[in-house]
């Protein structure tokens, strides 16, 4: 069990080498199309149900709220997807990458430096955080879930020790960008779409992307074909960190003031969206366009809950239940394909 299953989950189940390493473009498309259809179906059902109860749900306000929620969640989900697809299991310290990058961006701005310095600094901070995780995982040969569990709690503690809250300068360009809209949707929605499209293309058409999928699908086979596992793993953490850093920059643009704990609320929705999108925790497969649908669905839940007149905490209940169901379906599929 040197490969990616966290626990030897089931005696009859996955990890039979030949069955799982199909090329993503040969038989992958029908599966992801089916995923896309079913997620879109559930999403539409949710929208229809909410509209029946509250006809005023279909409004620009809801659209803005949902796309706004989708933006940062979506970028973070791409970061998480890079880790999961490349077989790095999960990054539980993602909230820390988000907040530490946002904090770096805001600090640069507060020191009077221009925006074009602040944004790269934010992204680089995310990369540095990813590199830290990656180095511990690769050189300690430790399970990423435990490593990021520890760095997640440790990083949060460090941030709580060093700053209580951070504010973005109210008149800065970045802040004004965060308040603005483009084509009727929040400005920050568009970088998210770009990240998803570019990420999806990179996975499908670049050598790095294909290698990441290969490493995630079957690490030993990839190694046998001459792919440097350590470099790929470290690269995936740093790349995912850069994406999370971008999420941090966007987060700082739309949040007038935040505390170190502000990232925690993204954790589950991101993991849930990734798993619901059929990006299996065992690695090696996933489609970022399905991920976009899945994010949309998850982001609609809080707004729907508000329209149903339920307390906001119900969103947690539904998202938790959804994650359980999604993982169940994922496990069931793996079990079936293994037979």
């Amino acid at each position: 069990m040197t490969t990616s299953l966290i626990t030897p989950a089931d005696p009859a189940a996955p990890r039979s080498p030949g069955g799982k390493t199909r090329r993503p473009d040969s038989r992958g498309l029908p599966v992801s199309a089916r995923d896309a259809l079913s997620i879109a179906g559930v999403w539409v059902a949710l929208i229809v149900a909410t509209t029946i109860v509250r006809p005023d749900f279909l409004s620009t306000q809801s659209l803005l709220a949902i796309t706004f929620t989708m933006s940062i969640t979506g970028i973070l989900a791409v970061s998480q997807a890079i880790i999961v697809i490349s077989g790095g299991l999960l990054d539980l310290s993602l909230p820390v990458s988000l907040i530490v990058s946002a904090w770096a961006t805001v600090t640069v701005l507060n020191n009077g430096l221009p925006t074009w310095v602040a944004i790269p600094v934010g992204i680089l901070t995310g990369m540095a955080w990813g590199a830290l995780n990656g180095i511990i995982v690769v050189f300690g040969k430790l399970n990423p879930i435990i490593v990021t569990l520890a760095t997640g709690f440790g990083g949060l503690a460090v941030m709580l020790i060093f700053f209580k809250s951070a504010q973005i300068p109210a008149q800065s360009d970045l802040r004004l960008y965060g308040l603005g809209r483009f084509l009727g949707l929040p400005n920050i929605f568009w970088p998210m779409v770009m990240v998803i499209v570019l990420g999806g293309l990179a996975f499908a058409y670049t050598r790095w992307g294909r290698r990441l999928i290969a490493v995630g699908g079957n690490a030993s086979a990839a190694k046998a074909r001459g792919i440097n596992l350590r470099r790929m793993r470290l690269g995936s953490f740093i790349g995912a960190g850069a994406v999370a850093g971008l999420a941090g920059v966007m987060f700082s643009a739309v949040t007038p003031s935040f505390t170190p704990a502000a990232g925690a609320s993204f954790q589950l929705i991101v993991i849930g969206a990734v798993i619901l999108a059929g990006i299996s925790l065992s690695g090696g497969k996933g489609n970022l366009l399905v991920l976009l649908l899945s994010i949309g669905f998850f982001a609609t839940i809080p707004t729907s809950i508000a329209f149903f007149g339920l307390a906001p905490a119900w969103a947690l209940v539904f998202q938790g239940a959804l994650l359980i169901i999604a993982v169940g379906i994922d496990g069931y599929r793996l079990k079936r394909t293994a037979r």
Binding site: L268, G272, L316, Q319, G320, L322, G331, K335
Partner: peptide, 26 residues
């Protein structure tokens, strides 16, 4: 969910963690 469907225990119980926290807050 874990035994019958062979789902990843960490992810399942992370969902349960959120669900129960949500119920407590409700």
């Amino acid at each position: 969910v874990i035994v019958r469907f062979g789902a990843e225990p960490l992810a399942v119980t992370l969902g349960m963690l959120t669900l129960l926290r949500g119920l407590s807050q409700v």
